[in-house]
Structures are given as C-alpha cells and as structure tokens.
Amino acid sequence: MAEFAAWLHATAVSQTIQSVGWIVPLVQCIHILMIGIVFVSSLMIALRVLGRMRADEPFELVWLRFAPWMWRALLVMAITGVVLIVGEPGREFGATSFWVKMVLLVVALLVTLRLGRAPASAAARPLAVGLIVLWIGVIFLGRAIAYDVEVWQSLSSHT
C-alpha cells in the first residue's frame, strides 16, 4: 500500500493537485456540501422508516423525493473524494480513520439499498437507526483523518 501511495504521489495528476493551491480546498468544500445532501437525504429516509418524518406520506414518495438526490450527491462526493486521495495518498492510506470510514461507507450503502427495497420489513427500523449512526461515523472519521495518532494512538497506522 505504501508503495502504491508513493507511486500515486509521484504521478503528474497528483503533483498537479499538490502544487495548484486552490484545488484541495475547493474540492474539500464540494465534498463537504455533498456530504450535507447525502447525510440529510439518508436521514429523511431513515426517519420516515421510523415514522418520525413525513409520516403522512407513503414511504415510496419519500424515497422518490430523496433517493435520487442522495445517489447523485454520493457520486459527486465519491469523485471529489478520489481527487483528495490522489492529491495526498500517503495521508489517506496511512490513516486508520480512512479505512474504517471506507468500511462504514460501504455498509451504509448496503443498508440504504436494503431500506429502499424492504422499508416495512422487521429489520427496517433497526437498519434505519443503524444508517443514521453509520453516516455520523463516516462524517466523524472523515474529519479524524487529520488527527489519526491523537484519535487512534497505538492503533493508528501512521508513524
């Protein structure tokens, strides 16, 4: 992994992202705005499953309202995320927070797909709570990448 990070770091794309000062801050801004859309769209879907939001509307209507926004914002979030990784591969791959975040992200997506297909199943309510917790975890870990040693101490893959 470290070798791959070193190779990526040396590529022309990575060098450009590193040397053009405004790219990383701007891409981070877009990344955070997209997280706002993804997180709150997921929250709306989860709260509807729990009957805490738009209970007067059928689930399908709520899903149709928020799922498309969620998926599109997720796509932009993924693209901007890749740009940030290419720009600083060592920082991302070297952080325990990054890997845990990726795992939580994949689980959150699987949970979302499951909720969309079976919103009335017995597992739907715990899954909805889980989805909210997972996204909070993803957001926390995203910020924690900058503080890997402080947060994970001996479990940090840095140092």
Binding site: G36, F39, V40, I136, Y147
Partner: peptide, 24 residues
C-alpha cells in the same frame, strides 16, 4: 489530544446537517 478532533468532527456534522436541512 482528543478535544479538538472530537469538537471539529462534531462541528462538521452539525454544519452538514444545517446545510442539508436548510437546502430542502
């Protein structure tokens, strides 16, 4: 060592929530 990462992460969480809800 822990205060700043936790507080910053919570700040980001809160900000994304403000933005997402206001946007709707």
């Amino acid at each position: 060592l822990k205060a700043m990462p936790v507080v910053e992460a919570t700040h980001v969480l809160a900000a994304t929530m403000v933005f997402g809800t206001v946007l709707i």
